[in-house]
């Protein structure tokens, strides 16, 4: 499994949790991205496609991730987790897709329906974090989320998952974990 080059014990656990849902491939190029997770009516099996061109030079990949952590593009996690970051983030996408299907078997496998459901989850996470920390949304974002997490709801979910698994606890990751456990 390619991911064993990048993942630690935690990643093995995530993989086992999702073993019935995933298909993982390495491609020569996935546009300009590191990886893409595909799901929906056109994808009977969820897929994570990793970009060979981004991974073939491990040290360069690690330095790129470290730089993006420093720049605030990515969540603030320890540098020794740099190589775990991208696979863990993509696992976050797998997780929201799996949870959506599990909790909404009668809803369509469309982006709009899935996004509405994820919106509701994110609402619960922020509500919980505000109640527990006393911080407002702007402060939570300022202190705890990456610029990439602001891209859309799914990226926020995946970034929170990466932060939860790779970094120490904060108000948002604790709220995220509680909401996931209460589903």
């Amino acid at each position: 499994m390619v991911l064993t080059n990048y993942g630690g014990a935690n990643l093995d656990e995530f993989m086992n949790d999702l073993r019935n849902y995933k298909a993982i491939k390495m491609e020569d190029d996935v546009a300009k991205s590191y990886a893409v997770t595909e799901w929906g009516v056109n994808y009977p099996v969820m897929e994570i496609n990793y970009n060979n061109k981004r991974f073939e030079r491990k040290n360069l990949h690690r330095k790129a991730i470290e730089g993006e952590i420093d720049a605030g593009w990515l969540m603030n996690v320890p540098k020794n987790q740099a190589l775990n970051y991208m696979p863990t983030h993509e696992m976050g996408h797998m997780l929201h897709n799996v949870l959506y299907e599990k909790h909404n078997p009668d809803l369509p496998k469309t982006k709009a329906s899935r996004d509405d459901w994820i919106d509701g989850l994110v609402d619960k996470v922020y509500n919980e974090a505000r109640n527990q920390s006393g911080l407002n949304n702007s402060d939570l974002d300022k202190h705890f989320i990456s610029k990439y997490a602001k891209s859309n709801r799914r990226e926020l979910f995946a970034e929170l998952y990466a932060r939860l698994k790779l970094g120490d606890k904060n108000a948002l990751t604790e709220a995220f974990e509680k909401v996931m456990r209460d589903l």
């Binding site: 300009k32 991205s33 590191y34 990886a35 893409v36 997770t37 790129a64 991730i65 993006e68 720049a71 593009w73 990515l74 970051y85 991208m86 983030h89 993509e90 990456s146 610029k147 990439y148 602001k150 891209s151 995946a158 970034e159 990466a162």
Partner: peptide
């Protein structure tokens, strides 16, 4: 973080949030 930091974000004067 399947996407790297886009070029337009590498200078804070180039974009608004």
């Amino acid at each position: 973080m399947g996407m790297g930091m886009p070029e337009f974000m590498k200078n804070e004067e180039w974009y608004t949030e």
